[in-house]
Design a binder for these strands. Sequence first.
DNA 1: ATTATATTGTCATTGAATGACAAAAGTCAA
DNA 2: TTGACTTTTGTCATTCAATGACAATATAAT
Lengths: 197, 197
Amino acid sequence: MNDTIAPKAGREGLRERKKRLAEQAITDAALRLFAEKGYYETSIQEIADAVMMSSRTFFRYFDSKEDILSGAIRAVQREGLRLAAECESNEPLKIALRRVFLHLAELYQQQRDGLLARYRIAKQSSALASLFLYAMLETEPELCAALAARLEPEPDRSELRFLVALHMTALRVTIEEWLENEESPPLSSLLEQRLIF
Amino acid sequence: MNDTIAPKAGREGLRERKKRLAEQAITDAALRLFAEKGYYETSIQEIADAVMMSSRTFFRYFDSKEDILSGAIRAVQREGLRLAAECESNEPLKIALRRVFLHLAELYQQQRDGLLARYRIAKQSSALASLFLYAMLETEPELCAALAARLEPEPDRSELRFLVALHMTALRVTIEEWLENEESPPLSSLLEQRLIF
DNA sequence: ATTATATTGTCATTGAATGACAAAAGTCAA
DNA sequence: TTGACTTTTGTCATTCAATGACAATATAAT
């Protein structure tokens, strides 16, 4: 039961590795079951059985069944947020927005398969679709705050909010179209055509 | 146990009236309890107790606890959709969109109090906020379909979808600002300033 | 090896949601 | 009004999501 070694002193231990392994196993099993029998027809007990853990332990990895779906999206969004915090202090607002959203597009692009699997499941019900959507939109306020804090001529709050929301909408609609068509151009180039604000 | 009479032959019976009364009573009691003790701290049993019905009966009026929050918004959105189906066949797309969304704004305006109560509760958690949001956004596809069906030079689907989403975003952001400020101008005039696409 | 710490399983509990069925209330015609 | 018919409601039972408590186990550090 060793593989890539090294529970070294100050490094990464076995625990962390097993943790991520288990997380991945749960996600894989859950997405597979959701796709096979439907989200609501799959109980947490079944997911837990599939990866041979108790259902109680499942809840130590995910806050809820829904979390399996939205977690990946939230991770991407958080990454985009991190980038927004890095903008130059004198960078014009629209340039900064463009940079952040094109970067987000590239992150999503790298996850097309996982995203598509989740998107298909989310479309099984409106409750799930709402989660999917919200995982994106919920970062709007934080994104506004990050931008407002770092941009030089502090932008008008109301205007900023609107602009961020418009960009997020462009991203959302573009992602949907990109996922729905099998052979579509790269997400980032699709988005570029939309960012005309 | 009579009041405004008339379970007349082809008209509205006592049942319908009691039904709407009960619905209203549930909504009122629930919103009050949510505001007082919090959404998650209020059980359906408590709501049912407050209006003296069994919890089983509650579920015959609302599909879920969340339904109390999002139902009102969905009703408004559906009304807006109805209007979209009425547009002239030769009306330009942007004119039709403007008409539909300004009408929606007026509908929301008439419900400011109820909407504000729900908005405050929705902000108690992201799961609730997502429902609130989705109650608006879920009508986008239907709105697209309604417009695409009736407009003369059938608009490009992709472009239509994007435009509808942008309008919905403008409505959403404007509603939020309008609700957050006590003394703010009428929603429809706020929205008008945003609809510049 | 022996501590200390983190992870997991078992058990119990709460609350949302739904099906089945009998009791009660509303509707309609004569 | 009575009496048949339909709708609404309450009771009961059940499933499943989610969470707290605590003991058993696995990992980490010395």
